[in-house]
Structures are given as C-alpha cells and as structure tokens.
C-alpha cells in the first residue's frame, strides 16, 4: 500500500508544471524514504531529477517499493481539477496498475477522486557522480528566468561566464548581441534577493536557451536558484522545494564543433 498526503495541492501542481515541459511521461519511484523521479528529455540533452522526502508529506506510507509510470499530460488534466488549497492524497495498492488522486476541500464538503492508468516505462537510470563544482551561483529564481527569457530573443545559445566578480550571461545572433552582468550582492539582509558566487576557478560554458527556459518553469517553487558549473561537464540548475525536497536539472554543455 502506498499513500502520500499533502495539505495543499499547490505544491504538486507546481512540481508537475516544472517537469511537464521537458517530459511526456516519467516514472515516480516510491520507497520508504520518499518519491524520486529521474528522466531525460526526449532528445537526451537534459536530465530531470526530482526528490520528495517522505518526512515532507503530511502523511506518508509506502509498504513496498513501487514504480509508477505516469503520462504527465494525463496527470496534469487531473491536477487541474484540484483547488490549490485542497488536500491531496495519492494512493496505490501494491502491484497496482492504477493510481488514485483524491482531493478534499478545506471544509471537507467536497471530495473528488480521479483514477489514472499507470504505464510501464522502460526508463534508463543514469548514475550522477558527486562533483565539486568550479563555480556555484545562487541568485533569485525570478531573475534567472527573466535573463533566460530576455536572452533567448537574441540567439539559440547562452554563454555563462563566472568569475569571482560576478556572472555574465551572453547571447548573439542576427539581431545583434546581448550581455547581462550580475555582481555579487553586498548586502546580506535580503537573502532571497542576493546573488552569491562561490568560485574555485573561473568557468565559461555555452548552453541551449530552449532547455534553460524549460527549467525556469520551476521558478514558482522557490525564491532562489542554484547554478553549479565546471568546465566540460553538465550544468546543474537546482530549485529547492521548501520542507519537501528539490528538483535538479542537468544540461549538457554545447561544445565547439
């Protein structure tokens, strides 16, 4: 028996919005410790890794490890039927081929349940090594989303250069070129608005705008985003989900042809 309850549906709606741009379907691996999801986008350029800890749920029970393959468009249809402040309960029997989403209104006067067929997805899991990154940037998630959106008008790629002084985002194309520089913030009183750079070595890497823009669908989950970079390895874009877990996106850099 698997059962996981959240007192507000909103957080799962946001999580789904953060992954459904990149993934058509995905397997939710449920265990005693929580729910994990790892999946590559269709073109195998990026990887999504989601972790929701069992202790972040308002109720959590998982007697046996369970892999639930879900069509995310269908899951989105169901999640659309929940009000943000409805209590959400996901339920499945052991070895079941369906999952049930139950939504309860705050006053308990409306209870809806939606049953969805599970899929057998043959998904490859990749091992992600623990890495010390040359540069780690923490910045407001809204600011990162804005920069990705603005720069994608000018080219298909964004060059991210990080030094101790700051981080620079650049794009160029037929219309011209664009450069956005962010310096480390000096004040520490507004943590959510700060730009913090931890640098061992300066790094310059090139990434496809399209994927960065998809990652920013996670912006509503968290005030800050963390970018981790080293030469010639995938970028990690991490959004923490307060009290529940995190979503990490890995993006292969573009390399000189």
């Amino acid at each position: 028996m698997f059962e996981a309850r959240l007192n507000t549906s909103q957080v799962l709606k946001k999580v789904l919005d953060a992954i459904k741009d990149l993934l058509n379907e995905a397997t939710f691996d449920c265990s005693d410790s929580g729910i994990q999801l790892q999946a590559m986008d269709n073109s195998h350029v990026s990887l999504v890794s989601l972790s929701l800890r069992s202790d972040g749920f308002d109720k959590y029970r998982c007697d046996r490890n369970l892999s639930m393959g879900m069509n995310l468009a269908n899951m989105a249809k169901i999640m659309k039927c929940a009000n943000n402040d409805d209590t959400l309960t996901m339920k499945a029997q052991d070895n079941a081929d369906t999952v049930t989403f139950m939504f309860e209104s705050q006053n308990q006067e409306k209870v809806s349940d939606y049953e969805m067929k599970l899929m057998n997805l043959d998904q490859e899991h990749l091992g992600i090594p623990e890495t010390d990154y040359a540069c780690v940037v923490r910045m407001p998630a809204m600011e990162f989303a804005r920069i990705c959106r603005d720069l994608s008008q000018f080219g298909e790629s964004v060059v991210i250069s990080c030094t101790k002084e700051g981080v620079k985002f650049s794009a160029s194309g037929d219309a011209g070129s664009a450069n956005i520089k962010l310096a480390q913030t000096s004040t520490v009183d507004k943590e959510d608005e700060s730009v913090v750079i931890e640098m061992q070595e300066p790094v310059t890497l090139t990434f496809a705008c399209r994927y960065l823009n998809s990652f920013t669908k996670a912006t509503p989950l968290c005030n800050q985003v963390q970018l981790s970079m080293s030469a010639d390895v995938p970028l990690v874009v991490e959004y923490r989900i307060p009290d529940l877990g995190h979503i990490r996106y890995y993006l292969a850099p573009k390399i000189e042809d």
């Binding site: 899991h125 091992g127 995938p234 390399i255």
Partner: peptide, 14 residues
C-alpha cells in the same frame, strides 16, 4: 559553431 552533445555522454548508465 557549437554542437549540442547528449547528457548520456557525461553520465554512465546505472
């Protein structure tokens, strides 16, 4: 000119 590689060339299959 830059070329987009696959994420699978960085992380090994489990």
């Amino acid at each position: 000119k830059t070329k987009q590689g696959s994420i699978m060339s960085f992380f090994a299959k489990k």
